[in-house]
Simulated assay, not measured.
Amino acid sequence: MEKARWAVSSGIDSARVRETGRSDADPLPWERPDEAGPPGRQPAGARILGAGLRAAVLLCLVTVVVHLGAVFLHVAPPNPVSRKYGRQVDAWVFPLFEQNWRLFAPNPDSVNRRVLARTARTAPDGSTQVSAWTDLTALDRAAVEHDPFPSHTAQNLLRRAWAAYVDAFGSDDTARSPRAVMMRKYLGNIAAERVAGHRGGTFDFIQLRVVTLPVAAPGTPPGGRPPAPVENRILPWWKVTPHGK
């Protein structure tokens, strides 16, 4: 009986040894070409996506730091750093990020200004076709009237662009600084976009006319005689990017 039990036990052990030997000879899971790679290793696409996200986050952080530094140097008192990098700071800040202190010391307009624009294009026969005047200020007012959430750009973009133009040019229209040239292009682009969005059509030149009117006295009836303009300033024709083509 003891020999029989030993034989059975020996047979089982031999079978296990043979089975274990065959298992050890098999290739490892990651050595098989038809199976996935070693555990814990990400696919190439996931690694590329992760690297791209990290690069995008780093780029955003660098942009924020540069922007805050440029704005700080712009509003800070003159110092060696702002004097050395003044041109780069102005190129970054103007005209989209211009800073002023009117939020804390408001300087409201004491007059009413109407900005009008007309356009011109060269016809196929060589003649110049000039449009009628378009009241851009009236368009802005109509866009915000009765609107509980009026657009900031509709209220102030054109007005602030004209104020910046006057600050850069003064009473004439001769550019004497790179900033003046930039503000002229900025104002012209705003006017061209407003005209193109209002009536469409094609044009290559634009001209602005700014009519300054005094503020009506309190108690003046709405249908009374309109006040005489204080200033009627017509700017030169400006070449703009062709619109409507």
Results as ranks from 00 to 15, higher is better:
Ala175Pro: 05
Pro108Arg: 06
Pro148Tyr: 06
Asp147Leu: 01
Leu59Glu: 11
Arg16Thr: 14
Pro78Tyr: 13
Leu136Ser: 11
Ser10Met: 08
Asp172His: 07
Leu49Phe: 13
Gly21Pro: 11
Val71Cys: 07
His243Asn: 03
Gly69Tyr: 14
Leu61Arg: 07
Asn156Pro: 04
Tyr186Ser: 10
Ala25Arg: 09
Lys239Pro: 00
Arg194His: 03
Ala163Met: 07
Ala55Phe: 01
Ile190Lys: 03
Asp26Gln: 13
Met1Val: 09
Gly197Ala: 04
Ala76Leu: 07
Val75Tyr: 02
Ala191Trp: 00
Val89Met: 14
Arg87Lys: 08
Val130Phe: 03
Glu2His: 15
Val211Tyr: 11
Glu35Thr: 04
Ser9His: 05
Val195Ala: 03
Ser82Pro: 10
Ala7Ser: 12
Glu2Asn: 15
Ser9Tyr: 07
Asp13Leu: 11
Arg54Gln: 10
Ala217Leu: 06
Asp172Thr: 12
Thr20Met: 09
Ile234His: 01
Gln129Lys: 06
Ala143Gly: 01
Gly126Ser: 13
Asn189Gln: 01
Glu145Val: 03
Thr137Tyr: 10
Phe72Ser: 08
Met1Arg: 13
Asn232Thr: 15
Pro242Lys: 05
Val211Pro: 11
Thr63His: 11
Pro29Gln: 13
Leu28His: 08
Thr134Gly: 04
Arg160Phe: 02
Leu158Gly: 07
Pro77Asp: 14
Leu136Lys: 03
Phe104Gly: 10
Arg118Leu: 01
Pro227Ser: 15
Val210Phe: 08
Gly40Ala: 10
Leu235Asn: 02
Arg83Ser: 13
Pro39Cys: 09
Asp109Gly: 09
Val230Gln: 09
Ser131Thr: 12
Ala56His: 04
Pro226Thr: 04
Val240Glu: 13
Arg184Pro: 01
Ala180Tyr: 02
Arg54Glu: 05
Ala120Ser: 08
Leu208Ala: 00
Arg179Val: 05
His146Cys: 04
Ser110Tyr: 02
Pro242Trp: 02
Pro226Cys: 02
Gly197Gln: 03
Pro124Ile: 01
Arg87Gln: 04
Arg194Met: 14
Asp147Trp: 03
Leu68Asn: 00
Phe205Asn: 04
Val130Glu: 03
Arg102Cys: 08
Arg184Thr: 02
Arg47Cys: 10
Gly223His: 13
Pro227Arg: 10
Val215Pro: 05
Pro150Ile: 14
Ala228Arg: 13
Gly50Asn: 12
Pro229His: 05
Gly244Ile: 00
Ala4Ile: 01
Pro214Gly: 09
Pro227Phe: 13
Arg209Trp: 14
Pro218Asn: 14
Trp162Phe: 01
Val89Lys: 15
Arg179Asp: 10
Arg159Met: 07
Gly69Arg: 14
Val62Asn: 11
Pro38Trp: 02
Glu231Arg: 02
Leu213Ile: 04
Asp125Asn: 15
Gly244Glu: 00
Arg102Val: 03
Asn79Tyr: 06
Leu61Ser: 06
Ala105Gly: 02
Thr220Pro: 08
Ala123Arg: 12
Val181Tyr: 06
